[in-house]
Design a protein around this nucleic acid. Structure first.
Lengths: 361, 361
DNA sequence: CAGGGCCTTGAATCTGTCG
DNA sequence: CCGACAGATTCAAGGCCCT
């Protein structure tokens, strides 16, 4: 990145205007918590709104939605320009605005990957008993486009959920207690401060250490604070000087975890590749060894170049597994078994053992 | 209602065309399960190489967003005309289409009351590990307009939820087993049959006995079947003759409950399950914390994804405990200890104390 | 007949790298 | 940009069979 690039800073300024100063494709991930209603709220409470039927084209309402849509389209377009081609964006909203956000994101070319439901453990009850308790907010997670090679730390998310796939519904508490920033009167500093746990999951799921994360609506600074703690870089934009000051102080108090503490479960597809042939060469699984499928219904012989032979078929561990079963593809490492010390074991164990040895050194 | 009014019938015909024959303000509630516009790209296989039977029906294919939006606007406009001024509408969708649905509903003058998350207890996993498990669908519940005196059976919902306010996130299973209609080959009749429990809650929440419920996308007939069972009237519209036939037969088999039987059924009890990772995210036991075994002979560090690291070994609290001691298995909750307020305490105490996380379901 | 094991299935935008 | 190929990847239920 150029020396001009304002990394690890909280910038005071208008969201769109400030984004315009950042170069194309310069951030890896965006987290945005845009204003929910703007003018819509005032309109909702208007006392003279007693028209019952027919006036569906209430120009006032239309104007309000249009204003919100225009603002949304403008900042999202700018965000998309700044986002790396393989980057992802998170946008959070409630039913007041999230449908407009999502539709505009799709129109601009973002490719939605998931909608995530943040289920609040402690939502405010519905006092008047006229609706269901509004107990969740929605996050839209999207790649820059359908072709983006986006990052998703699948194994880390699985680990975080007791070794089950992380689902699209997340159960997390609101930001309360000591985590909630207070002003000089002891009142909450910001009306919608997001919990650190939410940003923790977002950042661990979709970024790597040293990635650059942009938050165009920084507010109380949960995004830069968690980015710093988790060893990510950040750029945050905030209009209100009080929030800028509070966020900067908050981030200054934060400490970066050491790289050892930051290490999460690695993605298997990013582990160093070990050719099957290396086990043949080193004599761990010498040429002539017979491999079987799990049910011992298929059998193949290891050859000196690391291919397998079965009848008149020959190929890599993957190709032969696919060929013999008629499947379009096959992971040979988990398909084939051999006998060792009287035990019937998957050949993948060799890879696992050799990776464990590497970690020692 | 006029004698012409086709109450308690399943009409065969195009959705919009058929709605045009119904009078203004003639139905009390609408439940709509429109095409989702999934845009599936190719064949998907499970890890065991079996093929997933996806939705490849013609009715779910649209050329582009604009085409889908036009269709959506047309049927929603007609639906709004038919809906009583104090009526409500339910529309279900997934992230593929729900943002467009919601934005168009707002544009047409509908007043959103809640967005409801149907959390699936048994969703299909994400087989390639590239996204979060898509474990929910969204229902938008809206009144005809901001001034509608809509119906919401607050007490019935509260009773259904163990005397707590019903929240906006509902935990219900998919429609499987004997409830799922089969064709003559024993395969699922309809690709997207909705569970009866979902319609049960929708109708009990937002309609009274003898109300008229419209379903413009009847499909396999869950709406009319549940309307009849719950003593509501229905009008259903379906294009495909096979679905019309099956739905009519299904409804004929259905019996109206007596008013005594209409008493609500108890809510499904949700099993608490607290992943260790949730304590890491929420900062109760932040990444970097050091854990020890009871004798303080072993030691491990908490990482951001909720796994533990000790030397070159990594794993869940259970796996690492087993790995370090050479035991075949280990209960990590009782094996690991940490220091808190100068005390040396078992991590299991966090689970016991965690009232806030009790309701995880 | 109770319980365990095996098989099936569900609205799904489902790969990455190297040559 | 395209083709080849290595190889990563699943959870909860329900039904049915067997012991």
């Amino acid at each position: 990145m150029s020396g001009e690039f304002p990394v690890d800073q909280i910038l005071r300024g208008e969201c769109i205007e400030t984004m315009k100063t950042l170069p194309d494709g310069s951030v890896d991930c965006i987290f945005a918590d845009p204003p929910y209603n703007l003018q819509l709220r005032g309109e909702l409470r208007r006392p003279d709104e007693t028209v019952v039927d027919g006036v569906d084209d209430d120009w006032d309402k239309f104007a309000d939605y249009a204003t919100y849509d225009n603002f949304t389209r403008d900042w999202l377009r700018e965000a998309r320009r700044i986002l790396h081609k393989d980057g992802t964006i998170w946008v959070i909203g409630s039913y007041h605005n999230v449908f407009r956000l999502g539709a505009i994101m799709q129109d601009l070319g973002f490719w939605i990957l998931n909608d995530i439901v943040w289920r609040k453990s402690n939502p405010m009850p519905n006092f008047r008993g006229r609706r269901f308790t509004n107990a969740h907010e929605t996050l839209i997670w999207a790649a820059r486009g359908p072709q983006s090679k986006y990052r998703f730390n699948y194994q880390a998310m699985k680990a975080l959920n007791d070794d089950l796939q992380m689902r699209s519904d997340w159960y997390l508490p609101l930001c309360t207690g000591n985590e909630r920033l207070k002003n000089e009167h002891g009142l909450k500093l910001h009306p919608t401060q997001k919990p650190e746990s939410l940003l923790h999951r977002v950042l661990v799921a979709s970024t790597n250490a040293n990635d650059v994360v942009l938050d165009p609506f920084c507010g109380s600074g949960t995004t830069p604070a968690m980015a710093k703690r988790l060893g990510r870089h950040y750029i945050a934009i905030e209009r209100h000087p009080d929030y800028v000051k509070a966020a900067r102080e908050r981030v200054a108090r934060e400490e970066r975890l050491t790289s050892e503490q930051l290490a999460t479960t690695p993605a298997r597809r990013e582990m160093p590749r070990i050719p099957f042939g290396s086990f043949v060469e080193t004599g761990v699984l010498p040429a002539g060894t017979v491999l079987y499928d799990r049910q011992k219904r298929l059998k193949a012989t290891v050859t000196p170049d690391g291919t397998l032979v079965s009848g008149n078929q020959r190929g890599s561990i993957h190709k032969l597994g696919a060929g013999l079963t008629g499947a379009p593809s096959c992971n040979g490492w988990t398909f084939w078994y051999f006998e060792r010390d009287g035990q019937f074991v998957q050949i993948d164990i060799l890879r696992q053992e050799s990776q464990a040895l590497r970690n020692v050194g």
